[in-house]
């Protein structure tokens, strides 16, 4: 469906700064845990979990990474819901986050079965994408499954939002977009256009520009 993803910053790894003044102790503790202590499934049931893994895989596909290098997303979603972490907002037209997630994943699965006779997790990637796109358009056919849950709001404000909120705090994601990452006590000196400190990602390789 789409061309493979290439980061503009192939040589940059934010974790190379682990022992530098860009990281302080508490940041090392927090990111260390994120890397080492991936939580087990406690909130979703097995079927919801399979659907969730498939959804995460379509929202943030990571084909260029080996399986053990892929950024885990579903475990953190599960943990947040298990721990009742909360986001501060429950839209009036939605059930609580915990109920929305369970119902929503069931509904995505139901949508796949109504449309294609298969579980969502069993669909081909491009078919999964099409199902998710339809949900985002509010074009749902598994009517009952969506009762009381607006598909588009569920998909954008819970599914997409919470997935990117987990993916883009991972060092691998920071590195791929060239974000400076942790910065305390050391911040930045050079603030100007195209001005880069030595502890930042070197200038990116952008399509259409000559690599020198």
């Amino acid at each position: 469906m789409s061309t493979p993803f290439r980061t503009p910053y192939p040589t940059y790894n934010v974790l190379d700064k682990w022992d530098s003044p860009s990281f302080n102790d508490q940041t090392r503790e927090v990111i260390g845990r994120r890397l080492d202590e991936v939580p087990p499934r406690r909130f979703f049931d097995a079927i919801q979990w399979a659907t969730l893994l498939a959804v995460c895989n379509r929202v943030i596909p990571q084909p260029e990474r080996r399986h053990d290098e892929r950024v885990p997303i579903a475990p953190w979603l599960d943990a947040a819901l298990h721990e009742r972490r909360g986001t501060g907002t429950r839209y009036a037209d939605m059930p609580t986050d915990r109920r929305s997630w369970k119902q929503g994943l069931d509904a995505i699965d139901a949508e796949a079965r109504v449309r294609h006779g298969l579980r969502f997790a069993a669909l081909a990637a491009d078919v999964q994408d099409a199902v998710l796109k339809a949900i985002d358009d509010g074009d749902v056919r598994a009517g009952e499954a969506w009762a009381g849950l607006p598909p588009k709001r569920f998909f954008r404000h819970l599914v997409l939002k919470e997935i990117v909120r987990i993916y883009y705090v991972h060092p691998a994601a920071m590195s791929e977009v060239g974000y400076g990452g942790p910065a305390s006590p050391r911040g930045y000196v050079r603030l100007g256009v195209d001005a880069i400190d030595p502890w930042e990602a070197p200038r990116g390789r952008w399509p259409g520009e000559n690599d020198e």
Binding site: D129, K133, D136, L160, V164, E176, G178, A201
Partner: peptide, 19 residues
């Protein structure tokens, strides 16, 4: 994502323009 619903490789590519 909340404004456009973009996801998948399109999302990763657009995010790669971050800088």
């Amino acid at each position: 994502v909340t404004n456009s619903g973009v996801f998948g490789m399109d999302l990763r590519r657009r995010m790669a323009n971050y800088n």
